[in-house]
Structures are given as C-alpha cells and as structure tokens.
C-alpha cells in the first residue's frame, strides 16, 4: 500500500483523502440518524406510570441481598 501511495501524485492523494473524509462524514451522519431514530422510538415507548413512585422495592431488596452475598463471598 505504501509503495502504491508513494507513486501517486499529491492531487490523487488529496482526492482519495477528500473521498475518505466524505465517506466518514456520511457514515457518522447515518449512525447519528439511526441513533436519533432509536431515541424517537424509545420516547414513543415510554410509559408514564401512574404509580406515585417508580421504585420497585422488590428489586431494591434483591439488590441489597446481592450486596450481602458479595460481602460474604469476599470475607470467606
């Protein structure tokens, strides 16, 4: 590859570089577009729960049980 590049003129190298940068920009724009589309979908799927609090105490309890298990395994 390096020997090929070394045979190219400055103009040709610049042209390849410009093309590569353009492609990168297009890929970035496409990735951004897809991410925004996912975000729009996620917002559409949001559930505004009528529960007073979003906390699931069962999961909080499970979490602290895991913490205790982790502590016990560390002290053994």
């Amino acid at each position: 590859m390096n020997s090929e590049l070394s045979r190219m003129s400055k103009g040709e190298l610049k042209s390849i570089l410009d093309e590569a940068e353009e492609q990168i920009a297009e890929i970035r724009a496409e990735l951004e577009r897809r991410q925004e589309a996912e975000q729009h979908e996620a917002v559409d799927g949001l559930e505004f729960s009528v529960k007073r609090t979003a906390v699931d105490w069962t999961q909080v309890k499970t979490f602290f049980q895991q913490v205790l298990a982790e502590l016990r395994s560390t002290t053994r």
């Binding site: 559930e47 505004f48 729960s49 009528v50 529960k51 699931d56 069962t58 999961q59």
Partner: peptide, 9 residues
C-alpha cells in the same frame, strides 16, 4: 424491571 401500570393513551 417490573412494568408498572401505565396509561399511555
């Protein structure tokens, strides 16, 4: 995560 009751519409 538990799915809470929701009234989306």
């Amino acid at each position: 995560m538990a799915h809470a009751q929701s009234l989306e519409r």
